[in-house]
């Protein structure tokens, strides 16, 4: 999905959190680590919360406390924004598999 705003184009996506206990510590670490691989500015929010948070801040992602079945929205802005959103959606949709690194 492509959405445009005053700051330029944003790539956005939504995914349902299937993890049994929601967005707790380990998923938060994995999401943050993956987000950091991209140059794009990436924000996430859960269940249409008012505030978007920086997906590269592990403390903030952990504080999301999104329960199971909540909808996680991701938006990114920058050269590799599309790849970033696709990768993060895949991570959440596949229930945060152990990547090995």
């Amino acid at each position: 999905m492509l959405e445009t705003s005053a700051d330029g184009p944003f790539v956005t996506g939504k995914v349902r959190l299937v993890h049994a206990v929601g967005m707790h510590a380990r998923p938060a670490v994995k999401l943050t680590k993956l987000a950091k691989r991209f140059q794009a500015q990436i924000s996430v929010r859960a269940s249409e919360a008012a505030d978007w948070i920086n997906a590269k801040s592990v403390a903030k992602v952990m504080a999301l406390r999104a329960p199971r079945d909540s909808i996680i929205e991701i938006k990114a802005h920058g050269d590799d924004a599309e790849a970033a959103v696709a990768a993060l959606i895949d991570l959440v949709a596949t229930d945060f598999p152990d990547a090995g690194s």
């Binding site: 510590a25 670490v29 943050t32 680590k33 950091k36 691989r37 590269k56 801040s57 592990v58 403390a59």
Partner: peptide, 20 residues
Amino acid sequence: AVMAATEAAGGSSLEQVRAV
């Protein structure tokens, strides 16, 4: 320790790791 290591894994500087 968990937060610092997560930040460090992304290649961040010592100051960024400490700040996180």
